[in-house]
Design a protein around this nucleic acid. Structure first.
Lengths: 155, 155
DNA sequence: TTGCCTGCAAAGTATTTGCATAACA
DNA sequence: TGTTATGCAAATACTTTGCAGGCAA
């Protein structure tokens, strides 16, 4: 599971600040805080989880501001939005790592990642065959994660 | 693009009626109407589109009833629900055809299908490698469809 | 100083639920 | 006749928007 290093989070945060400046958007305390939480986590956070982490840090940022900051982060290309069909979105830092896809546990909701070059290539070829101009794709495998399989045995 | 034949729609409707009877759920006019629209279309309909088609037929079915009927249809296994990240769900008849994946046009929202056995096999293997118990998956390719590419040229 | 940001509350969108009435078996 | 469905309206969950006041450049 690729978790972002503290160094990488710092790099991303720097890029975000530069992005804001380049686009004449003020760099504010709230934007910094939200971005930092997403970059440091490296996981797939919901807005609720982001707000909880901020609260745990003793910071208060309004929900609307979190949503608005995430919008900017997505536009900047530093964060990616996901909809895993759970009724809300999840946000993920776009580190320098390669493209990856997701494994979603239907029991516990945990989201893991995997990367597979052959798969990526195959999708490009399939799109070509259909004369479809490929931009991006989404591959999600739903099932039971290792931990939840273990629980089946225990019980 | 596999569109369902009228005959196949009739078969599916029959199965749905039997499913209702087997589960001691009344077969009502509204359930019949909603199921028929989905089975005959063969596409990927939103609830709004389903209601519009019913209205066009001169039938009035309440929104809540459409949602409740779709829930039963999904439980019966005759219809599949999709979330293509457009802010609402789409529903598709599960014909006898093989598993397939989707191509979603980011311009016009059109949804096309493709089937690829090698891809299906590869996903099973990837899940195994990750010790993940594969149940189902979702592969979506986002980009520009043939028609919208053509429009680029014209303009 | 000027303009964009923030937080609150209100609005919005897709979907679900409660309840009185109506339809199926 | 006894369930269960239906339709309306209200509720819900997540997200977006309007606006008055507050920071960043």
């Amino acid at each position: 599971m690729p978790r972002l290093e503290k160094d990488e989070a710092a790099v991303l945060l720097d890029r975000f600040r530069r992005y804001l400046k380049d686009h004449h958007h003020p760099v504010t305390r709230q934007r910094d805080l939200v971005a930092e939480v997403v970059f440091l986590s490296g996981g797939h956070l919901s807005v609720e989880e982001i707000q909880r982490r901020l609260t745990d840090q003793g910071e208060t940022v309004g929900l609307a501001t979190i949503y608005r900051t995430l919008e900017v982060l997505v536009k900047s290309g530093l964060v990616r939005a996901h909809d895993f069909g759970q009724g809300f979105r999840r946000y993920e830092a776009m580190s320098t790592q390669a493209d990856h896809e997701h494994l979603i546990c239907v029991r516990c909701g945990r989201v893991d990642e995997f990367a597979n070059e052959r798969l990526e290539r195959m999708l490009g070829i399939i799109a070509d065959e259909q004369q479809f101009q490929h931009q991006r794709h989404r591959v999600e495998i739903y099932g039971v994660c290792r931990d939840c399989q273990r629980k089946d045995f225990t019980q």
